[in-house]
Structure formats: structure tokens, C-alpha cells
Design a protein around this nucleic acid. Structure first.
Lengths: 343, 343
DNA sequence: TACTACTGTGGGAGCGCTCCCAGCCGTGAT
DNA sequence: ATCACGGCTGGGAGCGCTCCCACAGTAGTA
């Protein structure tokens, strides 16, 4: 009984700093210094401590460290739950993989926080503050969301994905929506298309606006006229916008949709109208999601470096956390046009 | 200077239990009891404490609680990084959403852990043990993976997604692969198909084997002959298997692929051979991923309740954590045939 | 009336670490 | 030989909580 309990306690209660210190014949403080890589330790002492650590299989207790040092070595990735569903498919996992990669060689751990409605969102700032995460990664932030500023006021480092405006005050990582759209439309122009329409996303989203700007810039370069229908990033929206475009300009020979999902909706309508892709009408999407790869014909699309964005966000956040001076860089990563059969 | 520092300290150093106790005119222990919902507190005292908590905006410090109580109120979701990429698209985010939903009304927080190669996987058990998570959710566990057993030995509650064999010893949540496949093939039979082939997944994966079993059961019920080609859940594998099937049985009029991705590969080959879907050959997939919805024609597929599985996994884990007796239930959730134009 | 048995409460001890101060020792300058 | 000054080191204090023991007060029992 006692023996069993002792054994239990042994295996559950892992070795502590103090035990390592005793084993190595040094003091608690010295072991702490070795663990944390302080330079003020002699070579022999360090070796002795490291040997003891290895023998005992010592691993520091995070909770104790967090309590004593007043930092958690954890960051939170906040994902709006209602939208997680609608993300262009690989988005979420790619972001996570990028963040994970950036954190891999770090002691930092990743807290995943799904937030639902507005009420939950209100509690979130307090929640994050109380859990004392060292920093927060915010994905899919709306222009009118008070959360980022709230966190800033609490002194919690924040990095957001996607700028909310040209002069984003917060640290952010974005892809080059303008250039991506411009390149896509330029590609259509180069392919001899002359009546090039676009299906836009909601224009209160900065990224969607930039894609429209890129479309316009390419058309202006080619001296072509603009033909835009507005939608909301949904498949149904893509269908409606496509029908509208066809009604307004039956002669159109190319469509640039600001998302693959909308392109998918557009394709159905084009098909229903007996239009062949790409012979009669070329089609280009945005995101290079799995939808694009599996569409028939496979969809030319603008790839955003999602995983790299995740990594960059995490790296920016780590820098912000360890920095004494708060710097708030805005990173813009290049997109890439992936040409497939649809254009 | 001092004022600024004080203000800083104020906002950073949130109120403690002791301060709440002073405010409410009670002892520290009493506040703790109220916070943790102990019944042994008088109604008036509770009210006074709750008022003080509200006034001060007190939120317990997780690190301190974890240290004192020797539990972290956190569970880890372990995702094999190399596979995250290949999951049928919405899988990952759906699992996360399910888990998140189950944890929403809990104090539990979700730690996301991506594990890469084998070396990392070795460190993982120790890592998880040292971080003292209260439990672990394991996704996509291979039959020969030592990790689950390692965690068991460490006394850490574990729940895995998908059984590894008929008599899975660990707590697990799986979908009914057998019934899903059986229903899909029965649907083909009911549609008048007579030469029904299947493209299997790797048969050392229990779920893939069960799908094959379901296929066989349905054929046996209809008195039809079996026609199987083995693949590996990849698109290229699906192509190869389809070509092989076509060579072996040019008269086949239906194909049940054990995943949407393989079905997508099969469709390409069928198309290349001039076969119309569904007129000449019916096609059914498995997973009901976004690929299925966007395929042309849209692919009939077997839906797994991924989000529900995530929720069930989390609930099982919570039960295991709070239980004194370790019970290891194996849950099997029903699938659903989503009929689209391809069959 | 005296004893027992609760219920409710206060607060000491201690979780395992970091921070920091004081002390030890050897070195070089005086 | 003496003193000052570093580099290393040990260990006290304390982070904010939970656990648990002790004790006051009240009620029930003989």
C-alpha cells in the first residue's frame, strides 16, 4: 500500500529543481541558471548540472515557472468560430502549420481559442488577460472589431492576419492582394481576353478592395474597360454575380473572381449558359484552395502563402514579446499565380 | 515615474485572492471555496464574496492554481504534422471545432501540438508529461504507434480518433466505416448497378479495412461478385487503381472509392476513357469533403460526422479526467450517405 | 447541563520555480 | 601583506493559489 503509493508519487511527482541540485551537489539557484542558459556559470558546474538533469530526466514545471516569472511561455491563436467553417479550405490548417513551425524550436506553446458570438468575444479580452498568455495571434479581424485595440491597451502583444486598412496600426501579416489580382488579370490580357469582368468580395474587407484595385490597375494598363459585380465570398454570391455580369455583358470573355468559392459559383452559371471554359470564357479564382485543384477544368488561381503567413505572424509576435521597444511592422508577402486549364 | 510604474503594476498585477478576501471581509480560504463552487459556504458570505469579485474584476491565476492543485485545466490535441496536409480538407478544422464546442463551457483550454518526425514523436510523451496536461487527444494514430501506450503508462488520460483494431483497448471515437460503405454500395445496387468495383485505402488502416468489409457485405447481400483494387488514399493511387479496374473489367458500371480524393483520381481516368458519370459509370466517394461538393458532377459520398467526433472525443476525455475509475469506452458514430449527381 | 456533532470559517504550509542579495573565493594592485 | 574587485555560488523570499487542520459557533442528544 505504502509502497504503491510511494511509487505512484514518484512517477507522478517528477524531479524538481531542488532534487537536481542535490544530485549535482550545487544550489537551487545554480541549476536554475544552467537551465535558463545564464552565462554566469562555470564550465564544470554546468556539466555537472547537465549530467544530473539527464540522469533524473528533469523537465521544468511550467506552472511553477509561469507563477514565479510572471510569464506563461504560451501564445493564443484566436479563431472566430463562425467563420472557421467558411474559410477557403486549407486555410486554417495551413495557418496552424505555419505557426507551429515557427514555434517548434521554442518553449512557446500554442493555445487555440475558438470564439463564437459577440458576447463571447467581449469576454475574450479579459479571458486572455487572465490566462496571461504572452501574446495573441488574431485571424480574420473585421474592421470594426474592438478586440485588437482592447488587447493592446492591456499591454498584450498582438499580431493580426490581414491589414484592415492601408495604414494598419497593429503588427500584421498580409498577402499582396493587389499584385495577385493584377497579375491574374494581366495574364488574361496576355491571353487575348478583351472583356474581362470581376466578381468582388465585400468591399468593407480591405483585402477584397485591394483585389479590385489590382484588377483595375491591370485593365488600365491594357486600356480596357471595367466590369465589376459585387458579391460576398460565397458560392451563391458568385452565382448571382455571374448571372448579373452575363446579363449586362453577354460578350465577356473572361472573369476574375476574388475567391475560388465564388469562382466555383460562377463556373456553374457559365456552364448552365453553355459557355465552355476556357474556350468561351476564361476563369480565374483567388486562394488556390483545394476547390481550385479539383474543379473541372482545374482553376487558375492566385496562391497566397498561407503557411508562410502563419510562420511570419508567429515570428513577429515572438519578436514583439521579447522586444523592449514595441515595434509594429506590417509584413506583406507575395502571391503567386498558379496557371491551370481554366484560363 | 513611480506613478507610471504603479499604474503599470496595477494593470499587470491583477487582483489576487487575498485582495478579494480583504475586500469581502473574509478569509482567503473562503474566497477560494466560493470561486470553486464549494457548497460549504453560507449564502450571505457567498454573496459578499461574489460582489467583491465583481467589483475587483478578479479572475483566478491559472499558473498559481495549476501549481497548487497539480492540474493544468488544459488538454492537448496532438496532430501529426506531415499528415495534417493530406487530411480530407475540412477534417482538421471540423475536429477542432467539435473539440472547441465541447470545451466551451469548461475551464479547460486547448493546447495544439503539431508533431513532425519520429524523433519529435519520441520527445512528445515526455513533453506532454512535463507540461502536465490533464489529458491528450490523439488524431490519426497508426497501428504501430507507441505513443498512446506510453501516455497510458504515464497515467495520462488519452482518447484517440479511429480505432486501430476491432478491440481497441484505448478510449476512442470512430465513425461507422462498415455501415457507411455498406449503405453506399447498397445504394449503387438499388440503382441497378451490377458490376461494382471498389478502390480501397491501405488495408493496414483499420478504417480502410472496414470500408472494404462493408463493400463486401453489400455485394454479398445482392449476390454480386467482388472487384477490388488497392490504393493508398491519394489521388494518384486512385488513378492507378481505376486504370487497373478498367483493364480487368471493362464492363464495370459503378465504383465505390474509399475516399473522395481517390474518387477524384478515378473520375479523371473514367473521363479520359470517355465514360460519362453517372450514365456509364456511377461513382461514390467517402468523407464528404469539399472536393465532393465541387466535383463535376458533384460526388455522392459518405459523410462522417467529424465535428461530432471531435466533440465526443473531448467529452470522453473530460469524463476520463474527472473519473476515479478509468473507463475506456469506444464510441462509434453513424455515417450518412449524401447522394449527389454522380450516382 | 454537559457532551457530541456538525457547519462555516480563517489561515498555515507548501506547490516548484525565479529573482536577487549576500557571501565566498581567487586575482591583481598597492 | 593588505585591500578592492570581480566571477560564481547558495539560498531566502515570494509568486497566487489549493489543501487541510484547527477552531468558533450552533444545534442536537442524553
Amino acid at each position: 500500500m505504502t509502497a504503491a503509493r510511494t511509487a505512484r508519487a514518484r512517477s507522478a511527482g517528477r524531479p524538481t529543481l531542488e532534487e537536481v541540485a542535490a544530485r549535482a551537489g550545487v544550489g537551487r539557484g545554480t541549476v536554475s541558471r544552467v537551465i535558463n542558459g545564464s552565462p554566469r556559470v562555470s564550465e564544470e558546474t554546468r556539466a555537472a548540472v547537465e549530467a544530473a538533469v539527464a540522469e533524473l530526466g528533469y523537465v521544468p514545471n511550467r506552472a511553477a515557472r509561469a507563477l514565479a516569472a510572471n510569464r506563461t511561455d504560451a501564445i493564443a491563436l484566436v479563431v472566430p468560430e463562425p467563420e472557421a467553417r467558411f474559410f477557403a479550405e486549407p486555410y486554417f490548417s495551413d495557418i496552424v502549420r505555419g505557426v507551429g513551425a515557427a514555434l517548434a524550436d521554442t518553449e512557446m506553446q500554442l493555445l487555440l481559442t475558438l470564439v463564437g458570438g459577440d458576447r463571447e468575444r467581449r469576454r475574450l479580452a479579459q479571458y486572455l488577460a487572465s490566462h496571461r498568455v504572452d501574446g495573441v495571434l488574431l485571424v480574420s479581424v473585421h474592421a470594426d472589431d474592438p478586440l485588437p485595440e482592447l488587447l493592446e491597451q492591456l499591454g498584450i502583444p498582438v499580431v493580426i492576419s490581414g491589414r484592415r486598412s492601408e495604414d494598419e496600426p497593429l503588427a500584421s501579416v498580409d498577402s499582396d492582394n493587389f499584385e495577385g489580382a493584377r497579375a491574374a488579370v494581366a495574364h488574361l490580357v496576355a491571353g487575348g481576353r478583351r472583356t474581362i469582368a470581376t466578381i468582388t468580395g465585400p468591399l468593407d474587407v480591405y483585402g477584397a478592395r485591394r483585389r479590385l484595385d489590382g484588377y483595375r490597375a491591370a485593365l488600365a494598363d491594357a486600356g480596357l474597360a471595367e466590369l465589376a459585380a459585387h458579391a460576398d465570398f460565397t458560392e451563391e454570391g458568385g452565382r448571382r454575380a455571374m448571372a448579373e455580369l452575363l446579363a449586362r455583358a453577354p460578350g465577356l470573355d473572361a472573369v476574375f473572381a476574388a475567391s475560388d468559392v465564388m469562382a466555383s459559383g460562377a463556373r456553374q452559371v457559365l456552364r448552365d449558359h453553355g459557355r465552355r471554359i476556357p474556350e468561351d470564357t476564361a476563369l480565374i479564382g483567388f486562394d488556390d484552395s483545394s476547390i481550385a485543384r479539383h474543379m473541372d477544368p482545374p482553376l487558375t488561381s492566385v496562391r497566397q502563402p498561407i503557411e508562410e503567413m502563419g510562420r511570419a505572424m508567429a515570428e513577429l509576435l515572438l519578436a514583439e514579446i521579447s522586444a523592449t521597444e514595441p515595434a509594429r511592422p506590417s509584413l506583406v508577402l507575395p502571391t503567386e499565380l498558379v496557371v491551370r486549364a481554366s484560363s
